[in-house]
């Protein structure tokens, strides 16, 4: 193609010098824009087929009776959702998910922020810390779970440690015990995401103009006040983003940790809502029902995102 006529892109809003050729030129600009944007079509189609499509059909599948991926489907109306509210396993899953969120979110967000502030002061050893804190970023969900298989195993790290300090009566099979198994899962999520969030927040704090902190220091503000009254408000919006990521990660990605560490057991002690989506569909042949759980999870996810975004809106 050789277009030597107009090397610069005419913007459609620009006022035309002469009055008469305006409409035609505007139309040609629009045509040109459309031609240009056709390059986005493959990406858009991909996005529609692989992301939007499955998501929309999720809502349809949640209203059918469906016993297996290749079994026939029969309409069930809202029956799946009615069953949800009386199903004790789903109730337990909802409770565990809530517990996981309520315990881990504050610890991770506040802890990561304090760690990030500490790192931003570049104290002795901060390089080693950074390198170490990067490792969980590189771990996949399955590698993360496998690391902790060794930690919580009956003859694993924790029991070995208890044995070494003479507290071996406290030793137990951590993942096979109803109460400790759920806490083990929560600890794994905190262990991983605390450092991931701290790395992100440290990067954000690095970009803050340091003269702000100096001014506060000259005014006599200690680190505690500088951390909460200056650094926090400045990073407020970004902290919201980190909270959102953490929220979504806990809500959805923890399914892999549960699947690989406890398979929801012992009994149903460690089921979470996202684990149930998988378990109902692939192990219990309740595909339609599992999709009702997925719809609930999706709605909770979107509502949570909106809520967090609202709570962390920049205030100045």
């Amino acid at each position: 193609m050789t277009t030597l006529t107009t090397p610069h892109r005419p913007s459609p809003d620009s006022p035309d010098r002469a009055g008469s050729p305006a409409p035609r030129r505007r139309r040609s600009a629009r045509v040109r824009e459309a031609a240009q944007l056709s390059a986005t079509l493959p990406a858009l189609i991909w996005f529609l087929v692989f992301t939007v499509g499955p998501l929309v059909s999720l809502f349809y599948f949640s209203t059918v009776n469906w016993r297996g991926l290749i079994a026939p489907r029969t309409p069930a109306g809202l029956g799946n959702f009615e069953r949800l509210f009386t199903d004790p396993v789903v109730g337990l899953g909802a409770w565990n998910t809530l517990l996981q969120l309520v315990v881990s979110l504050p610890i991770v967000v506040l802890g990561a922020f304090m760690l990030a502030y500490y790192l931003s002061l570049k104290p002795r050893g901060h390089r080693i810390m950074r390198a170490l804190m990067f490792t969980p970023v590189l771990l996949s969900a399955s590698a993360l779970a496998m690391v902790f298989v060794g930690v919580f195993a009956p003859k694993g790290m924790i029991n070995g440690l208890l044995d070494a300090v003479g507290l071996d009566e406290l030793a137990r099979p951590w993942l096979a015990d109803g109460t400790s198994a759920l806490w083990a899962i929560i600890i794994v999520t905190i262990w991983c995401s605390l450092s991931v969030s701290a790395i992100m927040l440290a990067a954000r704090l690095n970009s803050v103009d340091e003269s702000i902190f100096e001014a506060a220091e000259i005014d006599g503000a200690g680190h505690w006040r500088r951390m909460w009254q200056i650094a926090w408000p400045i990073c407020r919006e970004f902290i919201g983003v980190v909270t959102m990521l953490q929220f979504l990660w806990t809500l959805f990605a923890s399914a892999a940790v549960v699947l690989l560490l406890t398979r929801g057991g012992p009994g149903n002690a460690t089921v979470t809502l996202s684990f149930l989506v998988y378990d109902f569909a692939f192990n219990q042949s309740k595909v339609g029902y599992s999709q009702a759980v997925a719809v609930v999870l999706f709605v909770v996810g979107v509502a949570g995102i909106l809520l967090i975004r609202r709570a962390f809106r920049q205030k100045y």
Binding site: L55, A253, A255, V277, F298
Partner: peptide
């Protein structure tokens, strides 16, 4: 969140 659409 992509995980929600696992089954579809």
């Amino acid at each position: 969140p992509g995980f929600a659409a696992l089954v579809p």
